[in-house]
Nucleic acid binder design. Structure first.
Lengths: 239, 239, 239, 239
DNA sequence: CCGTAAGCGAGACGGTACGTCGAGTCTTGGG
DNA sequence: CCCAAGACTCGACGTACCGTCTCGCTTACGG
């Protein structure tokens, strides 16, 4: 989306990295301060000390600016975390995915193997750990406003929604699929054969997203734990 | 929301029913035609043959107009359906709630008893029936655009989101709770004691909502069925 | 203008005198406070504690309300003055004429003879006296704002302008004509025969009005005196 | 007035001359067609094919637009006239001044010397000529509507009134002062020494303005002539 | 003496214009 | 040719009043 030109494809090699950064920062800070709806392109340009045209030249819409800025933010956040912590704790899921593909800029993305759901052999514990991390991230105010803005935009705007899902969410969701695949291979103590893992994943992640969306009740670790338990063992009485 | 005044509480007994209706209709048709973002208050007023002030007098925002119009639509749709069909088929869930209250009166929960999840004694079948109906409704183009618009607005705007959930979704969700409560009482073939029914419900409805939101894959009856099965019997191998 | 009906001539015998008065007062006070342009019918109605329709029923325009209110004011001012002073001093000219015909209400208008330019036999002195009074009235802040509003409206709106001139100004101007007629009869020390008195009057009153209109210089008694002298004896060197 | 900024002083060097012209033309034509009161900024913008903001950016009010447009018109009218005629005929007075300055430059008095009251040595004749021209201009329908609008606005709005007088009227009035000064130097057949020329001028011009304002009688050449005669030789019998 | 038909206060209504904001495009001057 | 700056056209915002139209209510009259 970043590379999409506006009229006659500007020469991206001459692009000012300084401006790009300033626009990201301005966009994120403004959205944090006044909300997405009241954030304007003009406002971003002014705060970034940039001409409006510089934004229009490189991005097709306000949402695209935010998406890129947010991707950048997540990536940076992840890198910091990755340095000092171990990978397992990191794995957010749902909203603010960790391993977005880097766009435009060329920094190599090492994540793939680095950020994975840990496999202690105990599926239940592993899933709880990851889902708790996801819940934490969703509660992090730094991420909440932009996440909501992007999710909202994505619900209504299919193109951006797809982009958002592909770049932010899918990488995370794939981690689940990996872990569940492993669990399915284990036999006992894992996941039943024949289970569609994509749907299995949604059984875990859907309820979290639902509660986040509707704000019907707070998102807590306890909630995450219960979701994992119910999903693994079902609602029906065990025979 | 209708009674909420704007500046110095207009006299709602003098309110023109004709205008209210025309505004609802204009709002829904415009949103269907050009989408929520490009629908303007000015446009609604023009199409409804109404002064802008008449909208501003009675609603605080475009979203509020749409919410009320949509509630009205659902209600009418329900009434029609209720006349010719039986209740079981009706029970939509997630998005476009069926049992909106008559909106002039203020009761938050109006699922008169008329609209309830059927209880054939077979929980799995009953849930599949309802979830399929929900899926159908989500795929109904008449509802899709406004639903997405309201959901998007609700994600970002907590006040409207709460209102939306309270008036559109909760009545439906309560139906699930009722049915699950009955199932829990049954003993065998139902729901395990000790299960938090609110969470149980989210296990069923969350995945549907998730897929609808992210558009990762089409929402089908088969999907609904699978979700019910996984939720009831768990992902783990049965002992 | 007051009697002109709006649609189907309301029954003026049932008219509320209380409202009429309240509207006059509200109109004058509002115009004094915020100026004519920012005075609105709605504002007058609100301050008068009157329904808007009551204004629209009896007056065709804001200007008409003001005209009537101002006429009323002048009349009352005159009556008060007339009680305690002698007539000669009173005679204002130009703008806020004294002897408007009373409208609608039936109070007898005694003015005609009462308010006249004094005839001491010395034309120059008499004219100075009257012109000084006119100047005083134009400088009276109580009259200035409404006068200017009405004059402005009258310049642009011929109908109202005529009405204004006829009811406010003409009575005053006629007084000049009377006095000049007498002066013309006198022979020496008066006005030359063959002089068109209407034009003579304008020679006296025009310069005052001009200066009032353009605000090029303050209106003073000295100015009035000089105008009288120049008008009587001409600009050219006397032979 | 054009350079006066609205909020944060736009850069007048970037100003679009095309728009300025279009706005002038639109304003004058609309005022001619529907009158000043029914002319709206929105209407001017629409007819000029210009955004409203472009008007609000450069002018503080509708009246200011008209003033500038009218100044421009007078200037152009003058230039045309000046090319083909001799100066004497030109001298309008009162309302639509002839010698507007080029307005981009700021000199308040631009009567280059080119436009002056002729001095044939016969003051009476000279004054009649000029006053007749003034009368003609006041009767010219092209000028009447805008003149009345500006005069009306100026009566009520001191700031605009002053501006109007300074830029439109004063240059003309100064011409009178020049001519009268010359006349005063002449001795016999001119103007008496000791006469205040400013007041003398008002004696000539005031009556014309008065009659124009009140519409009490038509403005004719004969009237102009009579005014000159009365003013020069006085109303009183000559000894 | 009692209905009934005004005038009245109140204020909702369909409109028009206001003055402002921001979108997205275009132009200018500087690096 | 990118960029900052910002003027441009356009369209929508939310507000203020317009002049018309009900509403109840009071008030005086005429059957």
């Amino acid at each position: 989306m970043a590379e999409r030109a506006q009229r006659k494809t500007p020469d991206s090699s001459r692009r000012s990295e300084r401006s790009r950064r300033a626009i990201h920062d301005a966009a994120l800070s403004l959205i944090g301060e006044v909300g997405y709806a009241k954030t304007t392109i003009e406002g971003i340009a002014a705060r970034a000390g940039v001409g409006k045209q510089t934004i229009y030249r490189w991005w097709p819409s306000k949402a695209a600016v935010l998406l890129e800025a947010f991707l950048d933010l997540s990536e940076r956040a992840m890198r910091e975390e990755g340095q000092a912590g171990e990978a397992g704790k990191t794995g957010g899921a749902e909203e603010p995915g960790a391993a977005g593909e880097p766009e435009a800029a060329g920094e190599p993305e090492a994540a793939d193997g680095a950020y994975a759901i840990p496999d202690t052999g105990d599926l239940e514990t592993d899933l709880k750990r990851v889902l708790r991390a996801t819940v934490d991230q969703m509660n992090d105010p730094r991420f909440e406003v932009p996440s909501r803005a992007l999710a909202a935009e994505g619900i209504v705007n299919a193109e951006l929604g797809t982009e958002f899902a592909r770049r932010m969410l899918e990488p995370q969701l794939q981690l689940y699929v990996h872990r569940l695949t492993a669990a399915q291979a284990e036999g006992v103590g894992g996941v039943r054969r024949g289970i569609d893992l994509r749907i299995a994943l949604e059984l875990l992640v859907g309820p979290i997203a639902h509660r986040w969306m509707l704000r019907t009740a707070p998102l807590t670790h306890a909630y995450a734990d219960t979701v994992v338990e119910y999903a693994l063992y079902g609602l029906a009485p065990r025979p």
